[in-house]
Write a protein that binds this DNA or RNA. Structure first.
Length: 300
DNA sequence: GACCAGGATTGCT
DNA sequence: AGCAATCATGGT
């Protein structure tokens, strides 16, 4: 039992090596985030539940390892299933069911991970539990700087998402599947990105692609399923394998951010080669997802 | 005003 | 299999 249902609030118990503050700091990295808000160390966001209702929740910390979720929207879900669904979402969002001790142990003597893991101790692989949101965010972020990616996401969400009590729900794939390329190109994304987004939305909307299907196969198979989709290359596939599907060995080795983080850690003038990265990554076997996440973190 | 950005596809050897 | 051109816009 890792959470308690007190009806008006949910109390969620974090595992060892968890820091709510570190995760909040990570979530605060962009001032242009549109999917949630953070005020006074509390997180606010809207969620769409499986029974087609929506809730607005507030997540705070009683202490750094006990989270409290309050239901702020007019309709506190009377159904126990809805509250359990929210508890699952929060646990998944902050990856609260992973034991990080083995990762911290291998990081102790790792030239690249030692510093980030001590500096950000308790940081989790903060996820994107919704598959379409994860894929869309990956596609939106391809080849452009992060601040522009946030701008595009905001336009995308505010154009095609749904607003609940002042907070945005991510656009539903059914909605995006019905758009034409020009609708998205108008937001100043490339026509190819527009095609990719619509294509992925159609696959999810018609049931060909789902989180369940990706989770019932092994890592390599899931990777192939993703890369076979037009617009999803190795980088986006591993990004989603890591941040949505929770595979521990996802490794977007071509990522510019990862390269820059290693460059910064080593004091290089130039970005490391792929061979150099693979050399360092030998020590990360089975924990590439967390290694990448912690290295990304030092850039913000 | 270059140069690069949390890449992927297409077309060519 | 490997490489170059292309996409298109905004940040720095």
């Amino acid at each position: 039992m890792h959470w308690e249902d007190h009806h008006e609030i949910l109390r969620i118990f974090a595992p060892q090596a968890f820091s709510f503050k570190e995760n909040i700091d990570y979530l605060s990295r962009s001032t242009d985030e549109c999917m949630f808000a953070i005020k006074d160390e509390k997180i606010y966001r809207a969620l769409a539940l499986e029974n087609n209702t929506t809730v607005l929740i507030e997540i705070s910390a009683e202490n750094d390892r006990i989270l409290e979720v309050r239901f702020l929207s007019g309709t506190t879900p009377e159904n126990k299933a809805g509250r359990a669904e929210v508890a699952r979402y929060v646990r998944e969002w902050f990856d609260m069911d992973t034991d990080l001790e083995p990762f911290y142990q291998l990081a102790e003597n790792d030239p690249l991970l030692h510093e980030p893991t001590s500096k950000f101790y308790g940081l989790r692989n903060v996820g994107l539990p919704d598959l379409f949101e994860a894929l869309a965010w990956g596609i939106l972020g391809q080849q452009i700087n992060l601040s522009f990616a946030y701008t595009l996401k905001r336009r995308f969400v505010e154009s095609f998402g749904e607003k609940v009590e002042g907070y945005w729900l991510f656009p539903r794939p059914e909605r995006i599947a019905s758009l034409n390329v020009q609708d998205l190109a108008d937001l100043k994304m490339t026509r190819k990105k527009s095609e990719y987004l619509i294509g992925v939305a159609q696959l999810i909307a018609n049931g060909e692609l789902s989180k369940e299907k990706l989770l019932e196969v092994d890592f390599k198979t899931a990777e192939k399923m993703l890369v076979n989709i037009r617009g999803i290359g190795p980088w986006t596939a591993h990004y989603v394998l890591a941040r949505c599907l929770g595979f521990p060995s996802a490794f977007p080795i071509d990522d510019v951010g990862l390269q820059n983080a290693i460059k910064l850690m080593l004091g290089y003038e130039q970005k490391p080669t792929k061979e150099e990265i693979l050399h360092y990554a030998k020590n990360w076997s089975g924990w590439e997802t967390y290694a990448t996440f912690y290295l990304w973190r030092i850039l913000y």
